[in-house]
């Protein structure tokens, strides 16, 4: 079995670690980097609890090897709040009661982030399809949809506010 050095930018910091070829990215993030906000909920790529952004795209980190992300950029839930200020999605989930046990929440938020990056004004249906790779057992999704709508509005307002001030 081969071992490989992985140089990767995680949440803005460059890390370099040697890992076994078979180490899954989610274990790299959780066990090697101690970023435990990214969770594991299945072994078949179904639940999405392990969702992170890889080079800006939401992926299931249980279905990619750590060695594959050498040279890449990863964002996890831990990087979303900047200088103690919550990201609009985090605010939305809190305001709208978009979480209960919190276990699917980081994956759900990262998935939603990619969705809003691609489509800043999604319809309710687009949101539902957009988060269909993430399972939540507690909320019944309705309030997650509201949380994402809240964030979309907030981001749009923020953008226009910036434009005005500029």
């Amino acid at each position: 079995m081969s071992r490989h050095t992985v140089n990767v930018t995680v949440n803005g910091e460059v890390v370099s670690e040697e890992v076994e070829a078979r180490m899954l990215l989610v274990h790299f993030i959780r066990e090697v980097l101690d970023l435990t906000g990214t969770h594991i909920g299945c072994d078949t790529s179904n639940c999405g609890a392990c969702t992170v952004l890889l080079n800006g795209r939401a992926v299931k980190s249980c279905t990619i090897f750590a060695a594959q992300v050498d040279g890449g950029t990863i964002e996890t839930i831990e990087a979303l709040a900047v200088d103690g200020k919550l990201h609009p999605l985090q605010e939305g989930f809190w305001e709208k009661h978009g979480l209960q046990c919190g276990y699917c929440t980081p994956g759900m938020i990262m998935s939603a982030k990619h969705l809003l990056d691609k489509n800043p004004n999604p319809t309710e249906e687009e949101i539902r399809w957009g988060i269909s790779g993430n399972l939540c057992r507690c909320t019944g999704y309705n309030k997650i949809v509201e949380a994402i709508q809240y964030a979309a509005e907030k981001i749009e307002q923020g953008d226009s506010a910036e434009e005005v001030s500029a």
Binding site: S45, G48, A58, V59, K60, I131, S132, G133, N134
Partner: peptide, 9 residues
Amino acid sequence: IADPLVRNL
């Protein structure tokens, strides 16, 4: 095909 997260890879 599968779900949006899977389709990203």
